[in-house]
Write a protein that binds this DNA or RNA. Sequence first.
DNA 1: TGCAGAAATTGGTTGGACCATTGAACCACT
DNA 2: AGTGGTTCAATGGTCCAACCAATTTCTGCA
Lengths: 243, 243
Amino acid sequence: MTDFLPPIQTTARDDAVLKALAGFVRQEALGPGEKLPTERILAERLKVSRNTVREALTRWEGLGLVERRQGSGTYLKAAVSPDMLHMPLTLSGGNDFAGLMRTLEIRRALEAEAAALCAIRGGKAEIAEIERKLDIMEDAFRTRAGMSSEEDWEFHQAVYRASGNPLFEQIISAMHELFHRFWEHPLGVRDFGHASFPYHRTIFDRIAAHDPDGARAEALKLIATVEDDLKRGAANLELSDRR
Amino acid sequence: MTDFLPPIQTTARDDAVLKALAGFVRQEALGPGEKLPTERILAERLKVSRNTVREALTRWEGLGLVERRQGSGTYLKAAVSPDMLHMPLTLSGGNDFAGLMRTLEIRRALEAEAAALCAIRGGKAEIAEIERKLDIMEDAFRTRAGMSSEEDWEFHQAVYRASGNPLFEQIISAMHELFHRFWEHPLGVRDFGHASFPYHRTIFDRIAAHDPDGARAEALKLIATVEDDLKRGAANLELSDRR
DNA sequence: TGCAGAAATTGGTTGGACCATTGAACCACT
DNA sequence: AGTGGTTCAATGGTCCAACCAATTTCTGCA
């Protein structure tokens, strides 16, 4: 039988709006951070109601593609192309300690693989960039006598980028946001991340030596120290926590 | 200096609507497939405009939490709890060969880690369940003289479940959907997955022996064979493909 | 009883209005 | 020159009331 008779579209205005807008972004070669037309202009140009435009933009906002600032405008937050795949993950129960440990297990998996890929595919330029971030991080560590989560994060991002697979950065960045939202402040550990410090250089060494298995192993060790720190912090918290 | 002054929130109506709705779903113990109140009723009860309700529902729809059917109603599509974490991923250019290989690299990372965790934490019952799926799969393989993606997938899901971390199943399931949407039919490889067959049992053996590193290694081998198959299929396709 | 058509229900769209925030231009004062 | 306050237009956020389109339910006839 004719297996493929696509259902006719009598109403899918907002979807059409998104398609048109994706085309527009492509046409104008808009990149992240740039401002796109106001809702009123879009509504007028596309011959749809402003509400419909808003529904479409709400979708994109929910997908993290776009950011709306009242009184200012709507801005592109990520590259957008007509052939995107959306993979909305909703993770239930992530705001307690167990949830954090679960996300960390995901991160361990991705971190190890990214480091390994990096050792395989990393070119001279990428490796140099990683080393630069590493130097900055070690410098900050020495001057401030403590882990700096900002520089630390920069280092890891450089590794993800050098892996040649943008998905690593996308997924871990999303998790990183969640991580911070719940755990940046309440955690009572003072020297958080202190133990993980030396492994950054060992990871880099294995990557620079193009030794994927070694890089994978070192990355696993690094995450293990973070898990330990976290467990210690949770234990500290137990002593004073109510409820 | 005061390093942390979080921006205050003056307006967040639609977000408040979602929170209220999540609470309602919890209160009424609504599960997937059940119908939730009409937009008009929600607007009236929550004392907000129907437009605001619609924006909120549009968000949930985009996240795949809810399905709207015109003339019928709005239905829950997945379990929803007030403490969910949303992690929308948009993979640009995922419908070509390179995109598929990228998702496979993510899967390799998660598959290996899940197998390792499974070897550490898997109890008797979980391991028995995995073995059951493995037997079913091997049986299907013998009778049909070829890989059955359905039974294969069941086996892997059992491993993810036994890992003790639901995130593995959630993430890989989402990717699995994408995988199928684009590659189920067009791929011309006949014996797809044939080479990966023996590794299913070796993975299981390492898990049953509670050998995390061994399980990780076997899982890596399995994905490697899939990658090879895929590359071969892509090469075949090249011969007849235009554009 | 069975079923076709009417009526009610529900999400989708429209247009118009007003509010809250932002940012730029302008101005007064130091 | 620069600091701070005011005004004002632009922009996203919310609201309302009505109508459209798809679906479900009801009703009355055969």
